[in-house]
């Protein structure tokens, strides 16, 4: 008697909860202010992912030729461009690159007590054109081009799926070791410049972007048409052709490395540790079975 009562009570409760939560999808659809952003496959995504140094080199070219006009990379030193697990340029080319970098390092004071500007060395950070945020805003009509050192870790995509789907997608990301939301967002942003939809007014000096929250962004469509030509007009070049998508993908990959330069080592050591833990767990479990054998 009590058993059936308990069962029916529990059933009622479970059904009530499930019922109340199924109301949710309608409201999700209604409040959809977050733009939908596609999951991308990256060479470095997932549990086996590693950076592709050729892609990082291409991405660095996009950063240098396009982004660095406004954005700095102040937490990344030139030297890291030649370190393992990154674009792996040669040390000499990094030295030359630093010396030619247009944005100087403020050093000093010198013997006269004055601060002075000098060319960066490999140990110096990759600076953008502006000395501080106020200077950036003054030059950019009030908008601040953010520093890009951590940008892919500082952005993420929102998952507005209905809750069972949401749980499934979360579980999928956890089991595949996928946490590249920031790179996905960046790629969607760089390729998200479209004509505004009917009835959407874009303020002066702003641009419509499908991926940007609020859809109005001060940054123009800088990668339109794929401005960075990887072939440099060489005969017999067989790398990827330049396009908006290719440029966007490469620079997103480069900035992912800039934000997380130890990913390669982390995952390599990660597998060694996982293997060790797995073997040890199995051995200890076998040992436990032996110890407990006489009680089973």
């Amino acid at each position: 008697m009590t058993k059936t009562l308990a069962k029916s009570l529990g059933l009622v409760a479970v059904v009530a909860i499930a019922g109340s939560l199924t109301l949710a999808p309608a409201s999700f659809a209604a409040g959809g202010e977050q733009p939908h952003i596609e999951h991308q496959r990256w060479p470095f995504s997932g549990i086996f992912g590693q950076y592709d140094s050729a892609q990082l080199q291409r991405g660095f070219r996009v950063y240098k030729e396009v982004c660095s006009a406004c954005h700095g990379l102040k937490r990344v030193a030139f030297r890291s461009l030649s370190e393992p697990g990154g674009p792996q340029f040669s040390e000499d080319s990094v030295k030359a690159l630093a010396a030619e970098w247009p944005n100087q390092i403020t050093d000093g004071p010198n013997d006269e007590g004055e601060m002075f500007d000098r060319a960066p060395r490999p140990s110096d950070p990759i600076l953008g054109p502006y000395k501080n945020d106020k200077a950036a805003r003054a030059a950019q009509n009030g908008a601040l081009p953010p520093d890009l050192s951590l940008i892919t870790r500082a952005r993420n995509t929102h998952n507005d799926a209905w809750f069972p789907v949401h749980f499934y997608l979360m579980a999928k990301d956890v089991f595949t070791g996928y946490q590249e939301g920031g790179a996905n967002y960046l790629y969607a942003l760089l390729t998200g410049y479209h004509e505004p939809p009917e009835g959407f007014t874009v303020n002066e000096g702003m641009n419509y972007n499908a991926a940007f929250p609020g859809h109005q962004i001060a940054m123009p469509n800088v990668l339109d048409g794929g401005p960075v030509d990887y072939s440099d007009g060489q005969e017999g070049y067989n790398g990827p052709a330049s396009s908006l998508e290719q440029n966007a993908k490469d620079v997103s990959a480069f900035l992912s490395w800039a934000a997380d330069p130890t990913l390669n080592t982390r995952k390599q050591i990660g597998w060694q540790v996982m293997l060790y833990l797995l073997i040890t767990t199995i051995l200890l479990y076998a040992g436990k079975r032996r110890i407990w054998a006489k009680f089973h």
């Binding site: 549990i47 951590l150 870790r153 500082a154 952005r155 993420n156 990301d173 956890v174 070791g177 946490q179 939301g181 920031g182 934000a259 982390r266 995952k267 050591i269 990660g270 597998w271 540790v273 996982m274 833990l277």
Partner: peptide, 17 residues
């Protein structure tokens, strides 16, 4: 170890970068 090596940012929040 799975989270630490493969998903170190997953349990955190992007705004904290």
């Amino acid at each position: 170890a799975w989270f630490m090596f493969f998903l170190p940012d997953y349990l955190g929040h992007a705004d904290n970068f």
